[in-house]
Simulated assay, not measured.
Amino acid sequence: MNQDKKIAVLLPCYNEALTVEKVIKDYKEAFPTADIYVYDNNSTDGTGEIAKKAGAIVKREYAQGKGNVIRAMFKDIDADCYIMADGDDTNPPVPEMADMILRGEAEMVIGDRLSSTYFTENKRPFHNTGNRMVRGLINTLFDVNVTDIMTGSRAFSYTFVKTFPVLSKGFEIETEMTIHAAAHNLRMVEVPTNYRDRPEGSESKLNTYSDGAKVLGTIARLFKEYKPMAFFGLFALIFLIISICLFVPVFNEYFATGLVPRFPTLIVAGFLLIIGLLLFMCGLILEVIVKKNRQIFELFYIRTKR
């Protein structure tokens, strides 16, 4: 590891008094020259005080939610390599992740739990199902091949951190990071990491259903924003098919009898056809805007590159 490069370990924490000290110790041993940052997200169990005693640089983020914490971290901290981990002691440090960033092999390195011990260690079966569903959706919609979409164990380059617009407020932030990298052709590499479930007495802040719904909403929103032609084109096709299905029987009746007895059906078919064409045009116009935004991003990305 290059000793001249600055490494920052980022630990967003909310009520992790039981584990935060051990996490800080483990990451200090793995990255002895790194600065350890703990951002306390309104903890009520003394997490911040424990982290400070353990030698971390502690700051407080008052806007609740992991996405808000990551936004503050990315804004405040300058480093050549950023290591992000959860404060719940589920992600052991992997020095190889920092090495890959510092060698310029990737803009984001993802700690892949799902290829190792996640499905045997994790005691929440709906989380396993949710991970598979989210992975399948993103890989299909954005044409990538990422195994672990929602892991909190990641490493980033300076360029990624300073060009990533954090829009999510909560746990959907990891999904947003992955889609951002995929949409802007930023190199992602996965490194298998071990996963261990939370120790007894430590409670997860994730809500399987509400947070899962937010993640799916984030995927839909980003698919619309990054691939508007595909998004609006899909709905345009649906309206077009329904319109044709309604119109064909009326058309056949007209040729057979010369009469149009079902005017309401014909009118509805016409309206659906118009809606489909409008959706197609929206997708076409937005696709041009997205392409222009990508060109602007590339210029900004080049200027930010160290």
Results as ranks from 00 to 15, higher is better:
Tyr195Met: 01
Val161Pro: 04
Arg196Lys: 11
Leu222Met: 10
Ile179Gln: 00
Leu222Asp: 01
Pro192Gln: 07
Thr159Arg: 09
Gly170Lys: 02
Asp211Tyr: 01
Ala181Trp: 02
Phe239Asn: 15
Asp211Glu: 09
Phe156Tyr: 06
Phe231Thr: 03
Ser168Met: 12
Ile238Arg: 08
Ala213Tyr: 03
Phe235Tyr: 09
Glu225Gly: 11
Lys205Arg: 08
Arg154Thr: 07
Ala220Lys: 09
Lys214Pro: 05
Thr218Arg: 11
Gly212Thr: 05
Lys205Ser: 15
Lys169Ser: 13
Gly170Pro: 10
Arg196Met: 12
Thr193Cys: 15
Ser153Trp: 02
Ala155Glu: 10
Met188Trp: 01
Glu200Pro: 00
Ala182Arg: 00
Thr218Leu: 10
His180Gln: 13
Thr175Arg: 02
Pro192Cys: 08
Leu234Met: 12
Pro199Phe: 05
Arg154Pro: 04
Pro165Tyr: 02
Glu174Asp: 14
Pro199Asn: 13
Ser157Ala: 08
Ile238Gln: 08
Glu225Thr: 04
Glu172Val: 01
Val189Ala: 08
Pro199Gln: 07
Lys205Tyr: 02
Ala183Val: 05
Val161Gln: 07
Ser157Met: 04
Val191Glu: 15
Glu203Asp: 07
Gly233Asp: 09
Phe156Ser: 06
Thr178Asp: 06
Ala220Gln: 11
Leu216Ile: 07
Ala236Asn: 07
Glu203Ser: 09
Met188Thr: 05
Thr193Leu: 14
Lys162Trp: 01
Glu203Trp: 02
Ala181Val: 00
Met177Pro: 00
Gly201Trp: 02
Tyr226Trp: 07
Leu222Tyr: 03
Ala182Asp: 07
Asp197Ser: 13
Leu186Thr: 01
Glu190Lys: 00
Thr178Leu: 10
Ala182Thr: 03
Gly201His: 00
Arg221Val: 00
Gly217Lys: 04
Tyr195Val: 03
Pro165Met: 07
Lys169Ala: 15
Val215Cys: 15
Glu176Gly: 10
Gly201Asn: 11
Val215Ser: 14
Leu234Ala: 12
Asp211Ser: 07
Leu206Asn: 09
Leu206Arg: 03
Ile179Val: 09
Phe164Ile: 13
Leu237Arg: 10
Arg187Pro: 03
Thr178Lys: 04
Gly201Met: 08
Ala236Tyr: 01
Glu172His: 03
Asp211Gly: 10
Ala181His: 01
Ile238Ala: 13
Glu176Gln: 10
Glu200Trp: 00
Val189Thr: 04
Met150Leu: 15
Glu176His: 02
Arg221Met: 05
Thr208Tyr: 05
Glu225Ser: 14
Leu222Lys: 09
Asp197Cys: 11
Pro199Tyr: 04
Tyr226Leu: 15
Val191Ile: 09
Arg198Pro: 00
Ile173Pro: 01
Ile241Trp: 03
Thr218Val: 08
Thr175Phe: 04
Thr178Trp: 03
Ser210Val: 07
Glu200Ser: 10
Val215Lys: 10
Gly233Gln: 06
Ala181Glu: 08
Lys162Cys: 10
Gly233Met: 08
Thr208His: 08
Ser153His: 09
Phe231Leu: 15
Ser210Thr: 09
Thr208Phe: 02
Leu216Trp: 03
Phe160Ile: 13
Thr178Tyr: 04
Phe156Gly: 01
Glu174Pro: 01
Met177Asp: 11
Asn207Ser: 10
Leu167Ala: 11
Ala230Glu: 14
